[in-house]
């Protein structure tokens, strides 16, 4: 399948990419291409200009400083899986990246591309939401940070302005006692999560984070279940009630048969059981 014709540019700096974004024509940024190119091949997207941002040095690299891991937007999933800093400071992010698509997809797809594409059924939004990550965004008015909780606005819609690009993701380091799990039910044909649950527990059980992707219109936190677990501790008797709370309060749509809420209950329960056993 051929995409519609487009003008191709390579940006070598963030400013250069920003200049092209401000040209007024429909411009799309190309990172690894594993979200954008399938859409363009199906002609669901037909940008007049495609700007390859893979050669921008500022978008690459992973650094840890002051309790935060900064992951460049062009970091590929395979690198997120193996990076020693991410494995040490924010292992939930690596666990999630490890089950995206398949080997070939993880070799090309990038964290920035996946997050900006904001597919309802993407894996990474659950991890960045559970980790309270900040999106570092560059635009005409300089650099700003958008919390993950405000970034995913609607299916395929983010809080990014039309002339902004994602530079990096800042992930707060998880505490040393943190235990985390990402558990998904892959769609048998596509591999995308029908539901994906990212969770971690730390600070002696005082902090519990549960973020759920795939099943709602956007990724969401199971706040009621988190609060219940923080108050009652994570144990075999609290998991059932937490799963029930997550299912009852899940913002799922068109769930006439109750299947979606059932999946939320079952997968939250399983993810918490894995976490309670210290399994990753």
């Amino acid at each position: 399948m051929l995409t519609a014709p487009f003008e191709f540019r390579r940006a070598s700096t963030v400013n250069e990419a920003a200049d092209w974004l401000q040209q007024g024509t429909e411009v799309k940024l190309l990172a690894g291409g594993h979200s954008l190119l399938p859409l363009m091949k199906l002609r669901l997207a037909a940008p007049a200009m495609v700007v390859d941002i893979s050669g921008i040095p500022e978008l690459h690299g992973v650094i840890a400083h002051d309790g935060v891991v900064t992951v460049g937007a062009m970091t590929r999933h395979v690198e997120v899986v193996k990076n020693p800093l991410i494995l040490a400071e924010a292992p939930l992010l690596s666990q999630t990246a490890a089950v995206i698509g398949d080997v070939q997809v993880r070799n090309r797809g990038t964290i920035g591309g996946s997050l900006c594409h904001a597919d309802t059924a993407a894996d990474l939004p659950a991890a960045v939401l559970a980790l309270d990550a900040q999106m570092v965004v560059s635009g005409p008015d300089g650099v700003r940070k958008i919390p993950a909780s405000e970034f995913f606005v609607a299916p395929f819609v983010t809080a990014l302005g039309p002339q902004e690009l994602l530079v990096a993701v800042e992930v707060p380091s998880m505490p040393s006692d943190a235990v985390s799990t990402y558990l998904k039910r892959p769609h048998p044909a596509s591999g995308y999560p029908v539901i994906g649950v990212a969770c971690w527990v730390g600070y002696g059980g005082a902090t519990v984070r549960l973020a759920i992707t795939g099943i709602g219109p956007t990724v969401f936190r199971a706040a009621e279940a988190e609060a219940y677990l923080a108050a009652h501790g994570l144990n075999s008797s609290s998991i059932g009630e937490a799963a029930r709370l997550a299912a009852v309060h899940a913002p799922v749509e068109d769930d006439i048969t109750g299947y979606k809420r059932q999946l939320v209950s079952v997968y939250v329960s399983r993810a918490l059981q894995h976490t309670a056993k210290g399994k990753n």
Partner: peptide, 27 residues
């Protein structure tokens, strides 16, 4: 499949397996 599912188009790009139906030649 031409939709980055089946892997029949897999080649090595700088030594890494990729699906060549989901990579532009200019990339």
């Amino acid at each position: 499949c031409d939709t980055s599912q089946c892997g029949a188009c897999t080649v090595l790009l700088d030594g890494e397996a990729v699906k060549a139906c989901t990579v532009l030649a200019v990339q």
